[in-house]
Computed example of a mutant assay.
Amino acid sequence: MEMLSQRQVTFFLLVCFSAILVNDAADTSTSCPEVGCLGQPVNITCDMTGVYKTVGFSRPDTIEVITCLANDKCYINDDNYEIVFRSPEKHILRIKKFSKKDIGMWNCRDGTDPLLKTCHMDGYDVKQSPTPTTSGCISLNKDGFRPSTLCRGFEEDPNVNITIWVANLPYTFTYDQYKQNDVVTLSNIPEGGDIECRVTGPASLCYTASKPYKNKICPAPGPTPPSRWLYVSICFAVLLVLVPVGLVVDWVCFRPRDKGATHFEKVKLYSRNAYTTTEEYI
């Protein structure tokens, strides 16, 4: 048998070495939430398929914060990170307190395999959810409303949109519209229901619930009760009408004919004499 040339031997060794590397490598996939809230814990998951010797988690500044050996322990390179779950197919990294240096692209990878899939996280401050502007019921009128007159707590955050629910009807504002205090007109004034102040958008995930986040709409005002002076005026007016009318009625209906205003009665007197009759007018 002919001896193999040096070139053939080199090629054969390269093929064998490549086969070893392929069999020893793992495919990795990194997944994480789209938003991390600053100061709050966040989990990042690494899914692996294949054979691997090491798995490392790298944050956006390319620093590998944790390195885990297959079937062995993990080495923590930063105390703000820890492994909370581990199996041959999955590792879960926990960021104890999400910070600005954790914003960006994360990846986990086998020591010999190139990146398969990465994930990206944005970061926002934790804030209190918006609240109505008053603790009592809120009055609405036909001229409409301005968002700042119904809800407070939006001015400092351009990363969210504002949604105000008025009796189950949503009205959404951008940050700029809220700052400009645009007027919203209402086709119908609700006579009841709630006003709710909400935020939407990625940063809204970092808003914590605060009570109350909604308030009642004041009922439609009823007729104003008349004042005491109105009653007095009505009584006085009635007296001014009834007194003259009463005098006129008395003068017309009860005055004796041809006797003026004084009333006399004709009285027939009988004398003691049975045969004599005396008539006298008193």
Rank of each mutant, 00 (worst) to 15 (best):
I66P: 01
E155L: 13
K117H: 14
C32E: 02
G39F: 12
G104S: 04
F98T: 07
D79Y: 08
E2D: 11
T224S: 10
T67K: 14
V267Q: 14
D72N: 14
V232E: 03
R146P: 00
S31V: 12
I66Y: 05
G104C: 06
T131Y: 01
G144H: 04
L69F: 12
S135I: 10
R146C: 00
D157G: 07
L205R: 14
C108R: 03
R109Y: 11
F98E: 06
C46L: 05
L186H: 02
G123F: 09
R257K: 15
D176W: 01
K73E: 10
A25G: 10
L140W: 05
L269C: 10
N159K: 12
Y281P: 00
N71P: 00
G136N: 15
W165H: 02
A167C: 08
D24P: 00
N181G: 02
N77C: 03
S187Y: 03
P221F: 01
C108S: 03
T200N: 11
S5L: 10
G153R: 07
G123P: 08
A274F: 09
P88N: 11
D72I: 00
Y275Q: 05
E156H: 11
G246I: 02
L38H: 01
Q6I: 14
L242Y: 10
D143C: 01
V241D: 00
P212H: 06
E2Q: 13
A237L: 15
T133N: 10
Y124Q: 02
G56V: 01
Y275H: 09
E280G: 07
T200S: 15
L4H: 11
I66M: 06
